[in-house]
């Protein structure tokens, strides 16, 4: 059976620098949620960038629904149905909320459909509806976070790639963010998550993928990863020992 996304022997790195991701393979099926964990510098974010097309892989191929993505621009990959939410908040801070939502739906050619999707997204995040005229950058962190995740419901991609969603967020916002991610996952969108907060990430996911030094260490169901004692010490940090 061919999976929705299949990453095959991908090697990637920046500029003239060394390889960050090395001969990495991974696949993701429809409606599946996988969380990639691993220490800093393991190449997790680099891998997501390579899938999203922001970074061109040096070798290897990425297939989406059987189509090879190599040579495709980031916007083309996005239009095929892979949505990437990078670490830095993926909104346009100087545009209004309404304009941000319109940009979210930019790739939808059918304007009536776009409008109804935006309406639906506002229905899920009523705060945004009250602040349509506000400049997005002036909203609170939590509201901006809602705007970010509203995108997933506006474009309804097949896969959403999320890079470090909890990075730099206040604890209460972390809870909120993960509830958004669960919402996305339960709507049938496949999620590939990269997360430092391993417990949260694994609790949200079906599978845990452990990555180190650019390579796949192993892949197991998330609850097994959580219980794996040796792994806790190695990758999940001392805090988890309790």
């Amino acid at each position: 059976m061919t999976s929705l996304l299949s990453i095959r022997n991908v090697t990637a790195g920046y500029g003239y620098g060394p390889d960050i991701v090395h001969d990495f393979s991974l696949s993701l099926n429809e409606s599946e949620v996988k969380c990639i964990i691993g220490p800093n510098g393991a190449g997790k974010s680099t891998l997501l960038k390579a899938v999203a097309g922001i970074l061109k892989p040096r070798s290897g191929d990425i297939f989406f629904e059987g189509k090879n993505l190599s040579g495709k621009e980031a916007y083309q990959i996005m239009r095929l149905g892979i949505c990437f939410l990078p670490q830095e908040r993926a909104i346009f801070p100087n545009l209004t909320v309404a304009e941000n939502l319109r940009m979210c739906a930019y790739s939808i050619k059918d304007k009536a459909l776009a409008a109804s999707r935006i309406k639906a997204a506002i229905g899920m995040f009523p705060v945004l509806g009250q602040r349509l005229k506000q400049i997005a950058g002036t909203m609170s962190g939590g509201q901006q976070q809602q705007l970010v995740y509203a995108r997933a419901f506006t474009i309804k991609p097949k896969i959403i790639l999320i890079d470090e969603p909890s990075l730099g967020l206040a604890p209460s916002l972390v809870e909120q963010t993960f509830s958004h991610i669960k919402q996305i996952a339960s709507s049938g969108i496949a999620v590939l998550l990269v997360e430092q907060n391993a417990i949260k990430g694994l609790q949200t996911s079906g599978y845990g993928v452990v990555m180190d030094l650019g390579k796949l260490v192993f892949e197991k169901p998330a609850n097994e990863v959580l219980q794996d004692q040796s792994l806790r010490d190695l990758y999940l940090g001392k805090a988890l020992k309790k």
């Binding site: 922001i54 980031a74 916007y75 239009r79 990437f84 990078p86 993926a90 346009f92 790739s107 474009i155």
Partner: peptide, 14 residues
């Protein structure tokens, strides 16, 4: 306007 604010973000919405 979106492109002039953040090129990568613009690309990521298509």
């Amino acid at each position: 306007r979106a492109t002039s604010q953040n090129r990568t973000s613009a690309e990521l919405v298509g």
